[in-house]
């Protein structure tokens, strides 16, 4: 299973593209934040696919986005 590329994504429907990205992102997110990986991955999938592809190749980018997502999620949950 090689790296996911923009070319591979371009042959899929928009929903399938997010699904393919999510399948790759989820294990990485889970290694950073095991308890909220499902929600954080769901949040990250709101981003542009090009950004998501970049995050798959850049652990630092992914980690900073996950940190940011955790902050947003906590703020959101605090409101409820």
């Amino acid at each position: 299973q090689g790296p996911l590329t923009a070319t591979m994504l371009s042959s899929a429907s928009p929903e399938e593209q997010k699904e393919m990205l999510g399948e790759r992102l989820f294990p990485l997110v889970r290694s950073i934040q095991p308890t909220k990986a499902s929600k954080i991955t769901g949040m990250l999938l709101e981003l542009d696919n090009s950004e998501l592809l970049h995050m798959l190749e850049s652990p630092e980018s992914l980690r900073s986005m996950v940190d940011e997502a955790i902050g947003v999620l906590q703020a959101h949950q605090a409101e409820e």
């Binding site: 929903e15 989820f26 929600k39 991955t41 769901g42 959101h76 409820e80």
Partner: peptide
């Protein structure tokens, strides 16, 4: 604000179809 925010964010579960962000509008 709206009650729909309770469902946010949708959870991604590996192996399941990604439903994405449907317009929550009951």
């Amino acid at each position: 604000n709206g009650s729909s925010s309770v469902n946010w964010p949708p959870e991604f579960r590996p192996g399941e179809p990604w439903k994405g962000y449907p317009n929550i509008d009951p």
